[in-house]
Structure formats: structure tokens, C-alpha cells
């Protein structure tokens, strides 16, 4: 698995322009927009998406086929992608936090520790969901078709949220009251609950990805 991590890190080394652009965007969002939260979330999610980029690079000119003749099992390949996704995203989170906090300090923007913590937890949950949704789709459909598939999944997700909101409204459930109860009165429990759910979703996604790749023929 370490060999695959080395490969992916080397693949990312070729993305210097992308990282330079991200760095500029952090500065821009923090200094001009005075919005450190957005900078951190944006960069962290961008780093999560890099995992997809490495899969596209692996698949370039049918390269995945050759990759699987090396001493790497399909299960190891999938596990490494999730691990790499988490490591890359956390690196993005740490890096963007450092740059953002520094920029906020220079611009004299107040950025409390509690707000950073909330941002970091939200980012980790979001990137876990992004990885969980996009990885099996990318493995199943390849880099070209997966874009449409990912779009479809997020569209379906939005429709599902809309329908749930409408059903709650019809049933006389006050969603705002529920959210307030969850995030104000029971914040710790809610955060832990969401973290456990995100971990569960990641575990299910990993299992699906392994099945997808084990069934795939080249």
C-alpha cells in the first residue's frame, strides 16, 4: 500500500499550478471576502477531490489494468484510495487553516478557535461524504462517465432532501426547531452522531468500492 501512496504523492507533485492557484484563492477569500471558513472548507474539499484525479491518472490509457498486475490486490488499491483521500484532505485542512489564520491575523479579522473547530468538523464530515459518494462511482464508471454519475447522485440527494423537507412540513414538523434542538441544545451529541454516521457511510462506501473493483474486468 505504501508503494501506491508514493505513486499518488508523485502524481500530485505534477499539480504545482493547481496548488499555487489554491494558495492564491485562500488569500483572496480570507483577505478580500473576510471569510476564513469558506477558504478552509473550499481547500479541504478540493484536496478530497484530488483523490479522484489520481484515479483518473491511474486510468489514463487503461493504466489501471497494468497497475493491477503489480503486487497490489484490488482491495489494497481501494483501501489506499480512501486512506490517501483522508490524508490529502487533512493535509489540505491543516495547510489551509495555517494560511487562513495567518492571513486573518494580518488583516486583523477575528477568527475564534470555536469557529475553526466547527469549520474543521464540518469539513471532515463533508469530505468524508464526498469521498464516500465519488470513489465507488469513479471506480465503476471511470473518469469520463463518472462526472455525469456524480452529478446525478448529488441531484438525487438534493431532490431527496427537498422531499423530506416537504414531508416534514406536511406532517407539521418544524425543521428549524429540530435543527435548533440538535445544534444548539444537544451540539456535542449531534456532532458525535454525525461523525459516527460519516464513518459508517465511509465504511459502506469502501465495501461497495471493493466489490465494484473486484467485479471490474479490464
Amino acid at each position: 500500500m505504501k508503494a501506491m501512496l508514493i505513486k499518488d504523492v508523485n502524481l500530485l507533485k505534477g499539480q504545482k499550478q493547481f496548488f499555487g492557484m489554491l494558495f492564491l484563492m485562500i488569500i483572496m477569500f480570507t483577505v478580500i471576502q473576510s471569510d476564513p471558513t469558506f477558504s478552509i472548507c473550499y481547500v479541504t474539499l478540493m484536496f478530497a477531490i484530488l483523490t479522484l484525479t489520481t484515479m483518473s491518472y491511474d486510468d489514463y490509457e487503461n493504466g489501471m489494468c497494468y497497475l493491477l498486475t503489480l503486487p497490489v490486490s484490488r482491495r489494497e488499491y481501494v483501501t489506499e484510495k480512501y486512506l490517501f483521500g483522508m490524508l490529502a484532505s487533512l493535509s489540505g485542512l491543516v495547510g489551509s487553516s495555517l494560511v487562513t489564520v495567518a492571513a486573518a491575523y494580518i488583516k486583523r479579522i477575528v477568527y475564534p478557535w470555536e469557529e475553526w473547530t466547527a469549520t474543521a468538523i464540518s469539513c471532515i464530515i463533508l469530505l468524508s461524504l464526498a469521498l464516500a459518494v465519488t470513489t465507488p462511482i469513479q471506480l465503476k464508471f471511470g473518469s469520463e462517465k463518472s462526472r455525469m454519475a456524480v452529478f446525478g447522485v448529488f441531484a438525487l440527494g438534493s431532490v431527496a432532501v427537498f422531499i423530506i423537507a416537504k414531508l416534514c412540513q406536511a406532517a407539521g414538523i418544524d425543521i428549524n426547531a429540530v435543527l435548533e434542538s440538535a445544534f444548539v441544545e444537544n451540539l456535542t451529541t449531534t456532532v458525535w452522531g454525525i461523525c459516527v454516521m460519516a464513518a459508517a457511510v465511509l465504511a459502506v462506501s469502501w465495501w461497495i468500492s471493493v466489490r465494484v473493483l473486484e467485479k471490474r474486468e479490464f
Partner: peptide, 28 residues
Amino acid sequence: SGDKEKIGVVLADSGFSGYLTVKNLIPM
């Protein structure tokens, strides 16, 4: 993985990722 180490492969329609260099391949 140990068994696969004993096999060397060349495929007609596939190979190392084009985005890597030979230098990148060596540590891998």
C-alpha cells in the same frame, strides 16, 4: 502479493500512468 512479485508483465494496451516519470517509478 508475494506470488505477484514473481511475475513480470508487459501488456499491449496498458502501462504505467503517463503522468509519472521513470524517476517517480523507482521508489514505487
